[in-house]
Design a protein around this nucleic acid. Structure first.
Lengths: 144, 144
DNA sequence: ATAGGTGCAAAGATTTTGCAGTATG
DNA sequence: CATACTGCAAAATCTTTGCACCTAT
């Protein structure tokens, strides 16, 4: 419940990845956890309320560092790149109308893992990770 | 075998989508079929051997038009956007080392369709299409 | 004839890089 | 203290847009 075991504690997360815990980074990590699939600009805006002088390049650099160290994943879309914290394999639901993105529970980890195994078994390809985006209409947009 | 029924005939493809068949477009459509998941620059280079004066903007515009009219799909990656002809649902195998991309047969259309149905049934989301990228090592890179 | 397409150049937008100063481990 | 990080500004991409000319229907 508290203390250094908390996996969502930015300082612990950074330390585990061997990265220095600067105030800016702590805030960036926190926002990537708080926000849902944020863009660089969204993280920048969120962090700026606490650190008005932070540079956009720092946000870019930090998100790249996080990605390189396995803390986060880049999700390139047609118009923007979004980021998400690395968790279990999962699908993302992307609304083609309002652009909302949410994690999908209906496609289980196990199925996604099973797909990787199947590909490695069948294809001459050593499957490691995957990205599954499902496009359609979210509840609100489907209703309208 | 020949004539207007040929689905890969650029003129027929363009006409079916209600687009004008200019020489440049015909060449662009042909190259998107010939090349595997090409980038804008790759299509541009390929078409330039036939039309040295073609503008890069024309390639951008045409690929966008094709995407808007359901002929092709954009595949945004971290560094570049690639394009592919719209076909059956399928997964793409992306090598994290050499960057090669190939269509995956091991994940069947049916499974992907089934996932969409499952999501629509379970989640409050009307699933329509999807993009599944599987990352790992291709045959060559896995061997090395 | 005319709506739509082409090519060029300029403008936008996004992301990376170089560097001097600063703070972390 | 040495290394790594920050912030700023400039640069490098990548993509879109405006406009005058052209061409497929």
């Amino acid at each position: 419940m508290s203390g250094i075991r908390n996996e969502t504690e930015p300082v612990a997360i950074l330390r585990r990845a061997g990265l220095r815990s600067t105030p800016q980074r702590i805030a960036i990590v926190r926002e990537v956890y708080n926000l849902s699939h944020p863009t660089v600009a969204e993280v920048y805006e969120a962090v700026r309320s606490e650190f008005p002088s932070i540079g956009l390049a720092t946000v870019y650099n930090t998100l790249k560092t996080m990605t390189d160290n396995g803390l986060a994943s880049e999700l390139p879309f047609a118009n923007v790149t979004r980021y998400e914290i690395n968790t279990n394999a999962h699908a993302n639901l992307v609304c083609r109308k309002c652009g909302a993105i949410e994690d999908c529970d209906a496609v289980e980890d196990e199925l996604l893992e099973e797909i990787l195994k199947r590909v490695t078994a069948a294809a001459s390809f050593r499957a490691e990770t995957q990205r599954l985006d499902i496009y359609g209409l979210c509840r609100n947009c489907a209703a309208a």
